[in-house]
């Protein structure tokens, strides 16, 4: 059957991602592929380029702390209520990380251009921001349809090598349900490949269900799927489970220094830090 590959394990999914790949990740409050990122770190992936849609948090900080990231494009990196992202800040200070600062809608726009197959899209705002001054890859033109001067920013299309996310549900044909996190559909449309973990794979054909169909990313956009129950923990997943505040607080504290981070990472990769029952 033509369709996404069903991988036997999250590790097999992670093995598809080579060093140096441009990978796109959703933020902590969306459909975060925590178990897949853990598998990437276990296989000691290196020199990744991260594209955060549109901000980075726990996962970006973990990957950076583990030494897996050479470059990050993002609108912000923060642990939200749990504080600043300590390993991101340390890597930046140490000069180990290239940072391409953006603003949230520019990252969405870059993917929208890619999903439409056009080389760039215009975006309002940004004029006069130092972000623009530090993005030689962005341009400014005069709106050709305006009566008078009307400068507008152009954002080039971005095609990530891999989109990674964790969804609640997929069916046996490889359709993946993301609900209202529709920006992940745009991401999957834009990316060369999408590697997805899901809470479970169901027997029903989701496209046959009118209520589920609008929340689906259809199989042609999905490269491979692996089941990973509680694959977003200790982050939350929609209304299925809440973020585990105790673990995230512990992370924010531990990761303030390299030693604490290494100790947390060891427990995390051993499955001891994200096995907290909901």
């Amino acid at each position: 059957m033509i369709g996404p590959a069903r991988e036997v394990s999250v590790d097999a999914l992670a093995a598809r991602i080579p060093d140096g790949a441009l990978i796109a990740l959703p933020p902590d409050y969306s459909l975060s592929p925590v178990s897949l990122v853990a598998a990437l770190i276990r296989r000691r992936v290196a020199a990744l380029r991260l594209f955060c849609l549109p901000v980075g948090g726990f996962l970006a900080d973990l990957l950076i702390g583990a030494g897996s990231v050479a470059e990050i494009e993002t609108s912000a990196v923060s642990l939200g209520e749990f504080g600043p992202a300590p390993r991101f800040l340390a890597a930046l200070r140490a000069g180990r990380l290239r940072l391409r600062d953006a603003t949230c809608p520019a990252l969405h726009t870059a993917l929208q251009a890619a999903e439409k197959g056009v080389p760039f899209m215009p975006l309002r705002g940004i004029l006069g921001s130092d972000i623009l001054a530090h993005r030689p890859d962005w341009g400014v033109i005069d709106n050709p349809f305006a009566d008078g001067p009307d400068p507008i920013v152009l954002i080039p299309a971005i095609r990530p090598d891999f989109a990674l996310f964790h969804a609640p549900l997929a069916d046996r044909e490889g359709n993946v349900w993301v609900g209202r996190r529709r920006e992940l559909a745009t991401l999957a449309h834009a990316a060369e490949a999408s590697l997805v973990t899901v809470e479970r794979i169901c027997d029903e054909a989701l496209l046959e269900d009118e209520r589920m169909a609008p929340g689906l990313i259809t199989a042609p956009y999905i490269t491979a799927i692996a089941e990973s129950p509680r694959g977003a923990a200790p982050l939350g997943l929609l209304d299925l489970y809440e973020p585990d505040s105790a673990t995230l607080t512990a992370y924010a504290r531990a990761a303030r220094d390299e030693e604490g981070f290494r100790a947390f990472l060891g427990r995390f990769l051993a499955g001891e830090e994200n096995a907290v029952p909901s």
């Binding site: 901000v55 923060s78 200070r93 949230c104 975006l123 309002r124 921001s129 130092d130």
Partner: peptide, 27 residues
Amino acid sequence: NLIGTGEWPGLEARFPGSFGSAFMYFM
């Protein structure tokens, strides 16, 4: 300024980043 202080991109004190501010402030 949500970027930081010191040399770009905030090597003295880095703030989280600009989020959507560079767009929302205009729109």
